[in-house]
């Protein structure tokens, strides 16, 4: 075991991006997922993402080889013991995360830092069943991790100073700026962006403007990289709903009550980029198809079907 090795738990989108970013920063990293298939898919995606970077001149082929050589994968939870830091990127539900933390707490040495990438669940709650909660912390990396130079850190009520300091050092080593809060689900970014996405969906529902115009207005008007609907597609509409529900339970603030259309889309399996359809349609390459925004006049049919 090396003090340089980081473990990323969960091979879905955020896990892939995180593995790529950690290995690019020069650390050895083990990606763990119970599914062999997810691991293979995850590593393939990491490689594809690096190739895309090379095509955009962001990386050289030599650098890619070095990055890939730092990445290992495993289906064994026990391999989490090999890292000095374990970052969990599982589904945004309390039970799943709490169960994993309980397991990791036993497997890993007491000084190993256990971090959750959760955006909307209290880290204190996630680590409720841990014997050593002082080493748990929330580190919210935002997608696309390679590009977003920010990590939000949330200390649980039992998190100690050494754990917090190590998390900040790790984020800085990855050339990220950190902001920190005390046990606040939603941190700053998620807390503020969700009501905007929710309002954008309502503006669409009410027929005030079509998808493209809503996104264009917000992008150009406020200098955002992506409009709220396209952002929802990227985050995953199911994840947006999880986030909203978690924050509503946390705050009882009406602005976090999910817009009806969001839930309808999730039920229909229109989860955004990952399912090739959300507010827009996407090709197999994940690129948005032109003029594919959900049409307001088809909404009733599309959602009723």
């Amino acid at each position: 075991m090396s003090h340089k090795t980081v473990v990323v738990y969960g091979a879905a989108t955020i896990g892939q991006e995180l593995v790529q970013a950690v290995a690019t920063a020069g650390c050895d990293v083990i990606l763990i997922d119970h599914s062999e298939e997810m691991l293979k898919k995850g590593l393939d995606r990491v490689e594809a993402a690096l190739d895309a970077e090379i095509a955009r001149w962001g990386l050289t082929t030599g650098e890619k080889r070095a990055i890939m050589s730092r990445i290992k994968s495993s289906t064994q939870v026990n391999d989490a013991a090999k890292g000095w830091l374990v970052i969990e990127t599982l589904k945004e539900t309390l039970e799943v995360k709490r169960q994993l933390f309980k397991e990791l707490d036993v497997i890993c040495k007491p000084e190993t830092i256990l971090a959750s990438n959760s955006a909307t669940i209290s880290i204190t709650e996630i680590s409720a069943d841990c014997k050593h909660p002082q080493r748990t912390i929330a580190m919210h990396f935002q997608s696309p991790i390679a590009k977003v130079p920010l990590v939000e850190i949330s200390r649980g009520l039992k998190t100690d100073e050494a754990t917090f300091a190590a998390a900040v050092r790790f984020a800085n080593m990855m050339h990220k700026t950190t902001i920190s809060v005390y046990d606040c689900p939603g941190f700053v970014t998620t807390r503020i962006i969700l009501p905007m996405i929710n309002q954008a969906v309502k503006v669409l529902e009410e027929g005030i403007a079509p998808c493209e115009q809503i996104d264009t207005a917000m992008k150009l008007g406020f200098g955002l990289n992506a409009g709220p609907l396209s952002l929802a597609d990227k985050i995953g509409i199911d994840t947006v709903v999880f986030y909203l529900e978690n924050l509503y339970t946390e705050t009882f603030d009406q602005s976090y009550l999910p817009a009806k259309l969001l839930k309808k889309l999730v039920r229909a399996g229109y989860k955004g980029v990952k399912s090739n359809r959300g507010f827009y349609r996407y090709g197999e390459d994940g690129l948005r198809i032109d003029n594919s925004g959900l049409k307001i006049e088809q909404l009733t049919q599309a959602t009723a079907r």
Binding site: E53, R56, W57, G58, L59, T60, K147
Partner: peptide, 12 residues
């Protein structure tokens, strides 16, 4: 391109 991508293009 981002600043870092352009930086890489010119330097590497």
């Amino acid at each position: 391109l981002t600043i870092s991508e352009m930086d890489n293009l010119l330097n590497k």
